[in-house]
Design a protein around this nucleic acid. Structure first.
Lengths: 139, 139
DNA sequence: TACTAATTGAAAATGTTTTTCAGTAAGGAA
DNA sequence: TTCCTTACTGAAAAACATTTTCAATTAGTA
């Protein structure tokens, strides 16, 4: 089941209720190919559910992030946008022109990590890797 | 010359004036081993120059960033802190316990980049890599 | 030393996110 | 179905963060 219904089910399974407001937010963020700020989610989701309040957008995004269904996207211009989360260990690839977001996996940073750990004395626990460029359409 | 004087000189060379307020901010950020938010810079720099205003901190950080003397640090908890910039192509290593920031270089992501470019059709132009862990003292 | 334009801090304005609150409604239990 | 508890809602207010405005000050050159 790969649809926004699965997200709603996840919310329900975690004791959260399914409401019209949440449906609108979930439908908006699920399957978006660009990252969206709370304000952008609000504007878009309100087309589906007119009475939606911005506060509910913040609250719903918070819960979706907590359940790892969405994740924050970090960019030079700002870090307030969200995108549906990748599954497992994945990294982001961002188009600098149109803003499209893609995931990729298969980075092997073990050698690098070991080398840095040895050099610095750090015990490395996590890494962030993000690529920026131009997507097939924009190049 | 590796001192905060060099930063002041850079400011001067770019047509900015050197003032007591700027000295206090520069002295605070230069050589800090942890990233600092504007508020933290303000609190610390005010010990050196009591009359300093928060607005001037924002304005000075803006100029230092513009001259690539400092850079923004992105973290899960927030992206509003700054640290003295690395020289050339360097990446960040952050201690999750004490917040210490270190730089490292020598990442070779060419193979990965080429592979992702081929797979996705992207023309990759830039990358962000950041490692998180525990520093020698905190582990 | 004098002058001009950049810089200053305070206050106001703007923008974003969180909290408060009273009314509403989801969804399990009967 | 109906009832009941409790989560959820939007609006307004509050809390924060950042930027703009402005009149007074001061750096740095002529």
């Amino acid at each position: 089941m790969t649809s926004s219904e699965a997200w709603l089910e996840q919310l329900h399974d975690n004791g959260y209720r399914i409401t019209a407001a949440r449906r609108a937010v979930v439908d908006t963020v699920f399957g978006a190919t660009h990252s969206l700020t709370p304000q952008e989610v609000y504007e878009s989701a309100r087309k589906k559910y007119r009475a939606l309040g911005l506060v509910t957008v913040y609250r719903t995004l918070e819960k979706l992030e907590e359940l790892h269904l969405i994740q924050r996207v970090h960019q030079p211009m700002g870090c307030h946008a969200f995108i549906a989360a990748g599954i497992g260990h994945q990294h982001l690839l961002l188009c600098q022109h149109c803003g499209q977001v893609e995931f990729f996996e298969g980075d092997d940073l073990d050698a690098l990590t070991r080398s840095i750990a040895k050099k610095t004395g750090y015990q490395i626990q996590e890494h962030w890797l993000q690529l920026f460029g131009l997507c097939a359409n924009c190049r």
